[in-house]
Amino acid sequence: MEQLGYEVVGTRDTYEDARRDIEFEQIDLVLADIQLSGTKSGIDVAEAAKARGIPVLFATGNPPSECAIYAVGALVKPYTDKQLKEAIQVVEKVLEGDRVDAPKGLKLYA
């Protein structure tokens, strides 16, 4: 992510660690996988982020239907760095209110 020009707050493997970042850090976007270590999932992380008004982009191999409740979209694995950057740029445009077409591999929910 940093090589793509973004500041990374942190990379977290558990819900508890991600939730702490969501509560105490200034975050513009949460990039979340569904599978995490521990008992809670990336969907739980997305729910916590949404409660604080932080948009979520899932990056997962098989996004379940409930992802749409919490996220702007889902980038389906496997993806390239270029696809990730394009997906984030599209999410930024969607959040600004623009209507855009999703690039290959990105499912938009908003």
Rank of each mutant, 00 (worst) to 15 (best):
M1H: 13
L4K: 08
E7C: 08
V8H: 09
V8C: 10
G10L: 06
G10P: 06
T11C: 10
R12V: 10
D13V: 06
T14K: 06
Y15K: 02
E16V: 04
D17C: 04
D17F: 09
A18V: 01
A18H: 01
R19P: 02
R20V: 12
R20C: 05
D21Q: 06
D21M: 07
D21C: 06
I22Y: 00
F24R: 11
F24C: 08
Q26W: 08
D28L: 01
D28G: 08
D28A: 01
L29A: 01
L29K: 03
L29F: 03
V30K: 00
V30G: 00
L31G: 01
L31A: 03
A32R: 00
Q35L: 10
Q35P: 05
Q35S: 10
L36P: 02
L36Y: 02
S37G: 05
G38R: 04
T39S: 13
G42E: 05
I43W: 03
I43Q: 00
D44H: 13
A46V: 03
E47Q: 15
A48G: 06
A49Y: 08
A49E: 07
K50S: 09
K50F: 02
A51P: 04
A51R: 12
R52F: 07
R52H: 14
I54T: 05
P55H: 03
V56M: 03
A59N: 05
A59P: 00
A59D: 01
T60A: 07
T60M: 06
P64F: 08
P64E: 09
P64S: 09
S65T: 12
S65P: 11
E66W: 03
C67L: 09
A68T: 07
I69T: 09
Y70R: 04
A71W: 07
V72K: 14
V72Y: 09
G73R: 01
G73Y: 01
A74I: 07
A74R: 02
L75E: 07
V76P: 01
V76N: 02
K77I: 13
K77H: 14
P78A: 12
P78C: 09
P78T: 06
Y79G: 07
T80D: 05
K82V: 13
L84Y: 14
K85W: 10
K85N: 13
K85S: 12
I88W: 09
I88C: 07
Q89W: 06
Q89T: 12
V90Y: 08
K93Y: 10
V94C: 11
L95H: 06
E96R: 15
E96Q: 15
G97T: 07
D98C: 15
D98Q: 15
D98H: 15
R99P: 03
R99D: 15
V100N: 07
D101W: 14
A102N: 12
A102D: 13
A102R: 14
K104I: 15
K104S: 15
G105A: 14
G105R: 12
G105F: 14
L106T: 13
L108D: 13
L108R: 12
Y109W: 13
Y109D: 08
